[in-house]
């Protein structure tokens, strides 16, 4: 147990991070910022997992391991996403969402 910091404080921080990420994903116009917003969401989840593991179930390590896997997969996802951004930039010379609108009904 960490001295003087209850679990609820950490959960409030992670929830705020999660919803900031969601808000950023919905409102931002730049593709890179949208990707960064999803990273915020994933990091909020990491905080959740580690905090739950540390405070509630300290005898098993499942939460810690889960957050390690999330970090690795987030890196893979970002790699693929940025590769596709580069491919789009070569075609359009822009990574702004407003310009990525050729597919519409």
């Amino acid at each position: 147990m960490i001295e003087g910091v209850p679990l609820s404080h950490i959960l409030v921080v992670s929830s705020i991070m999660f919803f900031v990420g969601v808000y950023g994903f919905v409102t931002r116009k730049n593709l890179l910022t949208m990707l960064i917003s999803t990273e915020l969401i994933l990091n909020a989840v990491n905080i959740n997992f580690v905090a739950f593991n540390r405070y509630l179930y300290p005898d098993k390590m499942e939460g810690h391991f889960f957050s390690l896997f999330i970090i690795a997969i987030a890196a893979a996802e970002a790699a693929v996403a940025i590769a596709i951004f580069i491919s789009l930039y070569r075609n359009l010379k822009s990574i702004d969402v407003e310009d990525v609108d050729s597919l519409k009904h």
Partner: peptide, 9 residues
């Protein structure tokens, strides 16, 4: 590329 971006994001 646009389809890829929409799918990955």
């Amino acid at each position: 590329a646009e389809a890829g971006i929409k799918l990955i994001l």
